[in-house]
Amino acid sequence: MKRAIMRNVQNVIFLLFTFVSGVFYLCFYMVSIVLGLGLSFTVVGIPLLTNVLRTTQIFVQHERIQTKIYTDISIEPLETRQRAEGNQWKQAKAELMDVRNWISVYWLMQKFFIGCICLVVGVLIYIAPVCFAFVPLFYPYLELTFFGFPVDSELMALQIMGLGFILMIGCSKIGNGLVQLIGGYTRLMFKAIRR
């Protein structure tokens, strides 16, 4: 029982982490790429864009580690890329022309949409059943309704609590499946980058 509870807590953390990291990747890459392209006519834009594209390998490796920790899905790490030889402009050209950087940005930014789905599903399958289980404690003090029906009796509160416990058991399997799907997404991302 304790192991199942810890697994569900890990799943909730991973789903919330997926949402937060998805928001971060979208904001970080959207702002920095637009800023880098907007400033590309100055001396600042191209080095900014080059340094932003260098972060893709770090973030992709971070995703691999998080997937391993929370889903126990092992993914082979990417080969470390060496910086191009030459001056700053040759290095910038190599980073900008490297297709793996742009593929990584695409897959990392897509994580925002997956994260939004994870947030909604995580609340529905993990947090809502726990809230249902505590209804008997709160119904005398709060005006609660359940699908339009007022919760004004102890029997109704106990029925909702029972539904919460049933949903906790049933939704645990759904949550495990969703976490494995997200781990599969990370695996697909690595396959696409390796091509």
Rank of each mutant, 00 (worst) to 15 (best):
Y139S: 00
Y185A: 07
S74R: 10
I13A: 12
V123P: 01
Y29V: 04
N87K: 00
F132Q: 07
M109P: 08
G148R: 02
F113Y: 13
V120S: 05
P77D: 11
A133T: 05
L167K: 06
E154V: 08
F24S: 10
L15W: 01
E95M: 10
L155I: 04
I69W: 12
V179K: 06
R83K: 13
V52C: 00
I114K: 12
T56S: 14
F17Q: 14
G38K: 04
D152P: 02
P47S: 14
K90D: 09
Q66E: 14
K93F: 10
S74W: 10
V20G: 07
L39T: 00
F149V: 15
G170E: 12
G122P: 04
A133L: 08
L16G: 03
A94F: 02
A84C: 03
I46D: 07
G175L: 03
I166W: 06
E85N: 09
L124F: 11
I117D: 06
L167W: 04
F28P: 09
I193F: 04
N51A: 09
V20A: 09
G170D: 04
F112Q: 01
D152C: 01
F14P: 14
G164S: 02
F24T: 00
I103D: 00
S104V: 03
Y126P: 03
A4V: 06
Q57L: 04
L48Y: 04
N51P: 08
L37R: 02
I33V: 10
G36F: 05
S21L: 14
A4T: 11
S40M: 12
T186C: 13
L16Y: 09
F17G: 15
E76P: 12
V12Q: 15
T18H: 14
D72P: 08
R81L: 06
A94H: 03
M6W: 13
A84N: 03
G164F: 02
F41E: 08
L37E: 02
N8W: 13
F17E: 14
S153Q: 02
Y141W: 14
A192W: 10
Q110M: 15
K173I: 12
M189A: 15
V9T: 08
K191Y: 11
I73Q: 15
W102V: 05
T80I: 13
T18Q: 13
G184F: 10
V34Q: 11
M168V: 07
D98K: 05
L188H: 13
W107T: 14
P47N: 04
L26I: 06
F19A: 05
V34W: 08
T18E: 15
I103A: 07
Y106V: 14
A94N: 00
F41D: 08
L35E: 09
V105Q: 01
R7S: 11
L142S: 11
L137D: 05
L15A: 05
V34M: 15
Q57M: 03
Y70D: 12
V120N: 01
Q110K: 12
Q91Y: 03
S74I: 06
V31H: 05
E154N: 14
T55W: 10
C171T: 09
S74N: 08
S172E: 11
P129C: 05
F146A: 13
G45Y: 07
L37Q: 05
